[in-house]
Design a protein around this nucleic acid. Structure first.
Length: 429
DNA sequence: GATCCACAGGAAATAGTGGCTT
DNA sequence: AAGCCACTATTTCCTGTGGATC
């Protein structure tokens, strides 16, 4: 120990932190035997050089959909490669692309077929040519089909979070049929849609549903026992031996089942966070209390992060509500929020939106669960209006932290709420 | 039971981005 | 350089409405 740095902990529990990251694809998928068999069967035609089947995967987040897909496509790619090596003259081309539709959704949450097409083109072209918006829709689709046609063989297109593809089904309809319609000649296209929204399937137009849902694979939530097995396998490689006990693993699994609908991701995060907590505290076996502390930290951090992920207007609005909340004016009407919001926006060097414009963000924040809204009606005297307050899941501190995290310059800004409300003609009783 | 407040929230207009085509 | 297309974000304009008050 002697000359150790202040950054050094007395104990080290985590052996390989990389195994806890999002990018890490496990070397095998545990506890998913039934599902994996279905999935493998769905992909077999590709290996055999037959027309691919389209597939639709659904199940809650953290239940292995994406992990299984990554894993199987890698395997498939490798298997086809080695098969091609053994069968010269009968090579089978295989390519896959993966696009997460959520990342390319604009502020309101739904990505258009247009955006998805652009993302696919960018993914297919090796970084080289990039384009964002501005092309005529037809051209974008043309580009996409040109790219696909140039590749040849079989191309599997994985659309993660397909439910985020809004109204216009066009892509979902056209892609699987591209060869029949004549958009492409040399390439066989298979579509794999991934969604955690069960209702998405029934919202699809029948013709799209028939093709996309050619094979449906449901990923059930993990049970506590399964989760335990999974994180135990991970812990063996990621943590030093004898730094954790079975009861800690079961606790992580149980919490993930109870609060995050059986998410393996969540169980993994809990274990990692608990390990770090124990390291910081300087004791060696991870204790149940570390896990509970980890849960608190994760819950707090998740909320802060999701607020920090919002756009500037929404953060300013949340900040306004938080300040009104701190001043004890909790359920507060739109007009008052707008008055406070306007001051904050100006302080941040931002042009404030009109009340109507802000209102759109406000209802969005309500839908996202950051705010709670109430309908009020005082008839002849007061008329009809809404009031808002922070959701009980969100504290004033979390909003402050989120604003700090996204570096909005609101640090020293204070509001004379009394005066602001007075100016807005909202002098309380 | 008619009135009428104060806003909700729909719809259309406007501004702005980016890129192609001629 | 002008005109076009596709898309997003915001403003302006407007109608709708639930229920306390008269």
């Amino acid at each position: 120990m002697g000359s150790s740095s202040i950054f050094e902990d007395d104990v080290e529990i985590i052996r390989n932190a990389d195994l806890f990251t999002e990018e890490h694809t496990p070397a095998e998928i545990l506890c998913r035997d039934d599902v994996m068999q279905d999935y493998v069967n769905a992909l077999k035609p590709v290996y055999k050089g037959r027309p691919p089947r389209n597939a639709f995967l659904y199940g809650d987040t953290g239940v292995g959909k994406t992990a299984a897909t990554k894993y199987l496509l890698q395997e498939l790619d490798a298997d086809i490669d080695s098969r091609n090596a053994e069968a010269p003259g009968d090579e089978r081309g295989f390519t896959y692309v993966r696009v997460n539709c959520q990342n390319l959704a604009p502020a309101d949450g739904t990505a258009s077929s247009y955006q998805v097409a652009i993302a696919l083109v960018n993914e297919l072209r090796d970084g080289e040519t990039v384009s964002s918006t501005g092309y005529a829709a037809r051209e974008v689709y043309e580009m996409l089909y040109d790219e696909l046609d140039a590749i040849g063989g079989t191309v599997l297109i994985v659309l993660d979070e397909v439910d985020r593809v809004g109204e216009s089904d066009t892509l979902l309809y056209d892609l699987p049929r591209a060869r029949d319609i004549g958009y492409v000649e040399n390439t066989r296209i298979g579509l794999i849609g991934i969604s955690n929204d069960y209702t998405f399937r029934s919202n699809l137009s029948p013709k799209v549903r028939d093709t996309l849902c050619e094979t449906e694979i449901k990923f059930p939530a993990y049970t506590a026992e399964e989760l335990e097995e999974i994180i135990e396998a991970r812990a063996e490689r990621a943590l030093h031996p004898d730094t954790y006990g079975k009861e800690v693993l079961s606790l992580c699994a149980a919490l993930a089942v109870r609060n995050s609908s059986g998410s393996a991701r969540r169980a993994m995060d809990l274990l990692k966070q608990a390990a770090e907590h124990a390291e910081n505290e300087g004791h060696v076996p991870i204790e149940p209390d570390d896990v509970y502390a980890a849960k608190e930290e994760l819950d707090y951090g998740d909320m802060v992060e999701s607020v920090a992920d919002q756009d500037q207007h929404k953060q300013l609005i949340l900040s306004a509500v938080a300040r009104l909340d701190a001043d004890g004016r909790t359920p507060v009407r739109t007009k008052a929020i707008h008055a406070a919001y306007r001051r904050l926006a100006q302080a941040a060097g931002d042009d404030p939106l009109s009340q109507r414009g802000m209102y759109n963000h406000l209802t969005r924040l309500d839908m996202l669960g950051f705010l709670h809204s109430y309908q009020n009606n005082e008839g002849l005297r007061g008329g009809q209006y809404n009031t808002y307050e922070l959701s009980e899941a969100l504290t004033v501190e979390q909003v402050r932290d989120a604003i700090a995290e996204s570096e909005l310059p609101l640090d020293g800004v204070s509001l004379d709420i009394e005066r602001i409300l007075g100016d807005a003609g909202l002098i309380d009783t």
